[in-house]
Computed example of a mutant assay.
Amino acid sequence: MTRFDADTDADRIELVAEAIAAHRERDSAFCTLEADEDPSDDPEFLPPWVQFADGTLNLDCTDEELDRLSTVVSRFGAFTIAERETVPADTAEEDPGTNVRIEARADDDRVGQFVDALFQDVYELPADFRLWAVEV
């Protein structure tokens, strides 16, 4: 890989595809993609992220984001929610939420399109958000 960030739809999709390819070539455990967007300027803010490994996407969602995730998944036929693990509020070290694993039966470009939709539609980031490949 020669670049590790992108801020347009087409470039982010390409970045995701290249990160997945680099992850496979390196035989790493997973690759991580992270948004560089803090709409609140909150010092405690943790940016949204998505991990990819062995044809599975892994991400965390709040309840509201989980509802939006179901809508995004319904638009992409090659993607299926395979597992959800909810962390109850009384046991969560941080905010309660749900860890979701999504099976991706698609080529790398289509995974890139799906990941871009996740960040924009599930995490409600603006169209010009910057995506980083932080681990490949």
Rank of each mutant, 00 (worst) to 15 (best):
F4E: 07
D5Q: 13
D5E: 15
A6V: 08
D7G: 10
T8S: 12
T8C: 04
T8D: 00
D11A: 15
R12A: 10
E14S: 11
E14Y: 02
E14H: 10
L15Y: 04
A19S: 13
H23A: 14
R24W: 03
R24H: 14
D27W: 01
S28P: 00
A29S: 08
F30Q: 02
C31Y: 01
L33S: 02
L33Y: 03
L33M: 12
A35M: 03
D36E: 15
P39C: 00
S40D: 15
D41W: 06
L46T: 12
P48H: 06
P48A: 08
A53Q: 10
A53G: 05
A53S: 15
D54F: 06
D54I: 01
L59D: 04
T62K: 00
L66F: 13
D67Y: 03
D67K: 12
S70G: 15
T71P: 00
T71D: 13
F76K: 06
G77E: 12
F79Y: 07
A82R: 15
R84H: 03
T86F: 09
T86L: 08
V87S: 06
A92W: 06
V100T: 08
R101N: 11
R101Y: 09
I102G: 03
A104V: 05
A106N: 02
D108F: 04
D108W: 07
D109T: 14
D109R: 13
D109H: 11
R110I: 10
R110C: 05
V111Y: 06
G112P: 05
G112H: 01
Q113N: 09
Q113T: 11
F114E: 05
L118G: 06
D121S: 10
V122E: 09
E124T: 07
E124Y: 01
L125H: 09
L131H: 06
L131T: 09
A133C: 15
V134F: 03
